[in-house]
Nucleic acid binder design. Sequence first.
DNA 1: AGAATAGTGTCTTTCAGACACTATCAT
DNA 2: ATGATAGTGTCTGAAAGACACTATTCT
Lengths: 250, 250
Amino acid sequence: MTEEAFLEAYDPAAFARPALTVDLVLMGLREGRPAVLLIERKEHPHAGRWALPGSFVGLDETLDGAAGRVLREKAGFSPVEAARTRLEQLYTFGAVDRDPRMRIVTVAYLALMPEAAFMKALESDARLSAAILVVPWDGTTGGIVEAFSLGDRDRATPLSFAFDHAEILAVAILRLRGKLDYSDVAFALLPEVFTLRQLQDVHQAILGTSLNKPAFRRRMLDRGWLAPTGSREGGTSFRPAELYRFQEMP
Amino acid sequence: MTEEAFLEAYDPAAFARPALTVDLVLMGLREGRPAVLLIERKEHPHAGRWALPGSFVGLDETLDGAAGRVLREKAGFSPVEAARTRLEQLYTFGAVDRDPRMRIVTVAYLALMPEAAFMKALESDARLSAAILVVPWDGTTGGIVEAFSLGDRDRATPLSFAFDHAEILAVAILRLRGKLDYSDVAFALLPEVFTLRQLQDVHQAILGTSLNKPAFRRRMLDRGWLAPTGSREGGTSFRPAELYRFQEMP
DNA sequence: AGAATAGTGTCTTTCAGACACTATCAT
DNA sequence: ATGATAGTGTCTGAAAGACACTATTCT
């Protein structure tokens, strides 16, 4: 916009333009590590490789709207579940040759959900598979993200990604790490009520490091985001932990 | 991409698609505050309002490439200057009605430059004007950005923005604040060599707060990003300060 | 000498890391 | 009682804020 020569282009079809899609990093936690939902491509190009679920952006929907639609159409979320999922724009990828068929620019989104919703989405659509992400801790640089099928216990054969989706995943993990301790992203990966131990596990899974227990508890409780529910977890064979609920800053 | 029904769309013109642009927040510092370069719109819509420089994204250029082209074509940067300017993707705005003429999605970029380059760009193109940004310090929320013409010393009449460009500016300021103390963004607003006082002024201008001098110096020097040049600033009527140069982390 | 800022020494407070300790629950 | 984890008290060290002080340059 703000183009002087714009008026000449008033006919929307006058100029060739890139196609626009959204691609979603559907992220949850499995086995104490970040995990994503992927689709195995059946057609060319990149047949047999793993891709993020996505869709074209319609003329009459916002980017967030298109991302929400993918959540419902491709991950089997009900409108209520989709509204409860934390959806955040990540970055826009526009390399000229990122798709060999034609010029496609994609707006990547990060969708965070608790483990239960992650598993439900996985089961809702046979095309979806879950992959565990293994991210080397190399400080702040992009780093290479490796993904392994949930069944691949030995982490023997890493999955290969379609298009630039490995890059998108690397950006997703980095963003998550960066926002972890000043925002409330971690709570989007937890159920409604949770223990402090679970919260610490989430942080550790995202950071890929272990954290000091007393310091972590102090920091979390001092922040004022946690409201004790008064009840305790059940089903343990040891002392059950207090359950907390996330509540906005006052 | 990753659309099953994709093959049906193999004809690039088959589906109506949003137009795609880049818009640039050309940012420098003036009078100890953040300032941006804006273009006053002459045509409808939003004639008389102030807009960010931007352009459509060509089929054969990347997003970063299109942003660099705007830098050269609209801000009069030479290729060398453009390459030296720090250009960073900010966020992608896709509200359906953000442009009344047609559906346009825009990828916003933040371009940071030292004061000299900022003034040179301002003078290179008569259509460009500089505006001082006044951002209320309301913690982390979006907040309203007000802009005033460089000549408007009393800050009497705020400029009104075209399209959603006020929102884009708010995101830009917030991003800058967020990255200020873990990244090297501040150095992009300073000349090659600079004093610690100038560095502190940049931080204060972006944050909108004043900072503790000894603590600031300690933090900056301990980070290891500053290399003393051995020479001192000139032209002062008092003790001249040591000049430093930014150098990457080892 | 005086003015003005550069640059530092040090005290205090705050907070993270570490470790050990106590508390509580199921079996 | 035992085992296992929840949860806390406290020491230590690192780093920020505050304040006052010294240092250096120009006029």
